[in-house]
Design a protein around this nucleic acid. Structure first.
Length: 454
DNA sequence: TTGGATT
């Protein structure tokens, strides 16, 4: 759990050099049992790193120096893993948080131990985490739960330094929060005590309590989101077997529509259906252009250049797509789905590529552009959803809702287009479309504030 | 049966 700042910590197990560990104190093997009672550590205790210790001093020698600030829970001199040599530093945990704070202010850089030429260091160990290790992400909150509710929930586990419920610009909760505790131990206790422990009212599954993303993870997440967006513009080519059956079924459905097309309202649907067959061809074209980590562009900007943002990747990718689009007669609508370097945009809709480049999230298009699809086959994923709806217009996003616990589709999802006409066309074509025993239900997504009394 | 979210 606790790594030495230098990167190597001694094994935490019982050993002759482990002096004041509670784990050992009852065993009596070291003979250094500090007292009759097994010390208990407060849940908000802080593990301290102690540096600039003379190599000649072991736990027993150090104990008196630190004991004057409070009862010691654990004191461990760090040894080299291989040689067993004293590394000149130690980890120190007092039973009480307060003792640690007192020791830190009294000793840190305040005195120099004999034989050392730099003053002693006493500060929270790196493992205590300056931030991320004590900060929790809390998911599956009820939308009506505010900071106070979250605080009440987490209070029993320690001192809460920060508590923020994430909200959309309009102020509605996103159903998640950040909670920062005073120590890593408290944060861990809260995870243990709360994760999955209950389901908040209005939440679709049990409470999620986990360590918040580190900066690095956040960056990665942003990259993935961006890749996902590009993926929606370049529909993910599936291994042929993965959705072939569905694609075939859809093509048959479209063919039937074509044959039946009579009224003026269906003309558009039929025209779109006629383009369905290009989907497969398109996927093959797009395959080598997908922004996967393995796809190192000829210009040499590989995955190593990730933080540099997708410009080189995007430029190369879309640039090389151009000849292909030109070579596909009769596929204007298809290739105008934000894929061409010169997309035909609806008025007032920003270039999706630029939005992706800017890292803007837009799960949903404008009002009237977002579909809610229910009765999806269990095995339908995002990719199948994209493929199914791509023919009707520029798909801005497609998401199948998945139960996190089981990883199973909840059999509904969302598809967003960049314009309402595409959405209507898709409803016309796909609502009621039969797959297996089920019929797809395709309708406009309910706006966020629907059902809300005014 | 209406976006599982990361300051």
């Amino acid at each position: 759990m606790a790594a030495a700042p230098g990167g190597s910590a001694p094994p935490a197990g019982p050993g002759p050099r482990l002096a004041f560990s509670t784990a050992d104190s009852g065993v009596g093997m070291s003979g250094l049992n500090p007292g009759p009672a097994v010390p208990m550590k407060d849940h908000d205790a802080i593990k301290l790193f102690v540096g600039q210790i003379p190599r000649g001093l072991d736990e027993q020698d150090l104990k008196p120096l630190f004991e004057e600030f409070g009862r010691i829970y654990e004191l461990t001199v760090l040894k080299d893993r291989l040689t067993g040599l004293h590394k000149g530093c130690a980890f120190l945990t007092y039973c009480a948080r307060d003792s640690a704070l007192k020791a830190q202010s009294a000793l840190h850089e305040q005195k120099t131990l004999p034989g050392m030429n730099r003053p002693i260091q006493v500060k929270p160990a790196a493992s205590e985490g300056r931030g991320e290790d004590r900060k929790l992400f809390v998911g599956m909150l009820g939308k009506q739960q505010g900071e106070e509710d979250v605080r009440r929930l987490f209070q029993p586990f320690g001192h809460i330094e920060e508590c923020t419920v994430l909200r959309s610009p309009d102020g509605t909760s996103k159903g998640c929060a950040f909670v920062k505790f005073g120590s890593q131990g408290e944060a861990q206790a809260a995870i243990q005590g709360l994760h999955g422990s209950r389901t908040m009212s209005g939440a679709s599954s049990s409470l999620v309590v986990k360590l918040a993303d580190t900066d690095r993870e956040r960056a990665l997440r942003r990259m993935q989101q961006m890749a996902g967006q590009l993926g929606a513009f370049h529909p993910t080519p599936l291994p042929l077997g993965a959705c072939g059956a569905y694609t075939t079924a859809i093509l048959q459905h479209q063919a039937a529509l074509l044959a039946a097309a009579q009224g003026p309202g269906l003309g558009q649907v039929a025209a779109v259906a006629a383009q369905m067959q290009h989907v497969a061809a398109f996927s093959l074209v797009a395959a080598p252009l997908l922004p996967t980590a393995a796809n190192t562009s000829p210009g040499g900007s590989g995955p190593g250049a990730l933080p540099g943002l997708p410009a080189p990747m995007g430029v190369n990718g879309f640039g090389s797509l151009t000849p292909q689009t030109n070579g596909q007669p009769g596929s204007d609508t298809l290739y105008n789905n934000g894929l061409s370097p010169y997309p035909a945009q609806s008025p007032g809709v920003a270039d999706p590529l630029q939005q992706a480049y800017a890292g803007i999230q837009h799960y949903a298009g404008p009002e009237g552009c977002n579909l809610f699809i229910y009765h999806l086959p269990q095995e339908f994923g995002d990719a199948e959803l994209i493929q199914t709806f791509l023919p009707f217009g520029a798909v801005v996003s497609a998401k199948v809702f998945v139960d996190r616990a089981t990883n199973q589709s909840k059999c509904f999802g969302f598809v967003s287009f960049d314009n309402p006409t595409s959405a209507q066309t898709a409803i016309q074509a796909m609502n009621g479309f039969q797959i297996g025993m089920k019929r797809l239900k395709v309708q406009l997504k309910r706006p966020k504030d629907a059902n809300r009394p005014y």
